[in-house]
Design a protein around this nucleic acid. Sequence first.
DNA 1: GTGCGTTAGACAGATTCTCTGTCTAATCTG
DNA 2: CAGATTAGACAGAGAATCTGTCTAACGCAC
Lengths: 148, 148
Amino acid sequence: MVPRERQDPNLGILLFVTYRALERRAHEAVVASGITDITPAQARVAARIGPHGSRVSDLAEQARVTKQSAGFLVDHLEAAGYVERVPDPADRRARLVRLTPRADRVVKIANAEVERALAEWVDHVGADRLLQVYETLRDLREITDPWR
Amino acid sequence: MVPRERQDPNLGILLFVTYRALERRAHEAVVASGITDITPAQARVAARIGPHGSRVSDLAEQARVTKQSAGFLVDHLEAAGYVERVPDPADRRARLVRLTPRADRVVKIANAEVERALAEWVDHVGADRLLQVYETLRDLREITDPWR
DNA sequence: GTGCGTTAGACAGATTCTCTGTCTAATCTG
DNA sequence: CAGATTAGACAGAGAATCTGTCTAACGCAC
């Protein structure tokens, strides 16, 4: 087959491809370990949960979905036993979503796979260049992330 | 309100935030111009259409969805008059999805907004650092994009 | 050329995800 | 205290995605 021409990729597509590669690696590793009751959308929300728990509203902001969507995803994660909702002592309107012990294994598998992927990336472009990407995107966050 | 602690963002989240910021800017600019019949998911597929048209299968690969999903989105874009399907002279099984003249205005608005956003990013971190990000992600593509 | 495996894409159906809109309770602010 | 804001639940609709199946066309080995 004749190779079809490729347009020069723009930055948006490169960001998308790179992000998706990482997400896909993590999700596939989790599935490969026999855990099949977590979808990518649920994982995207769960990955934003802080060490001491997070509010649904905050998760929604971080995952760039509405509070309703985030609540829907948290419902499923909760039903599957990966998160729990506890009252927020600081605000009686709010509830904190926390990872359960059941989630620890998933987190460990996903993180390990991300580490593995990043190691491959370092092999490919070097640690210095990858670090530059990280630092630039981090600095860019001030203007790309309206919620800080 | 007491600012809640923030975890140090990982590379995955930074890639996600940055990509979404760009996509959101483009989409909002299009909507602001009065064009409201294109969804982000449709735009994501449409943005992958090459200058001489692309096959649904290729669009699916680029947008990281199944052929079925891509076909579904192309159906809607076609119904709204933004793309057309023409026979592929090189392969009678295939059809090429091409942008119509009606899509030109949308493309122009979206591209202009992306240019504007990138200019702001350059102001914030400098052209050299942004270029480094581009080049590194481009080189990384060899291993992050299984479809080349 | 015939036959077999592969590929492009359509169709059907189900599930998952996301949104708008509305509501209550709690908090914050002047 | 009164009004505005915030957290998040509930309801319903719509969009996006998937698996599975099917047909037509291609490619290749024989």
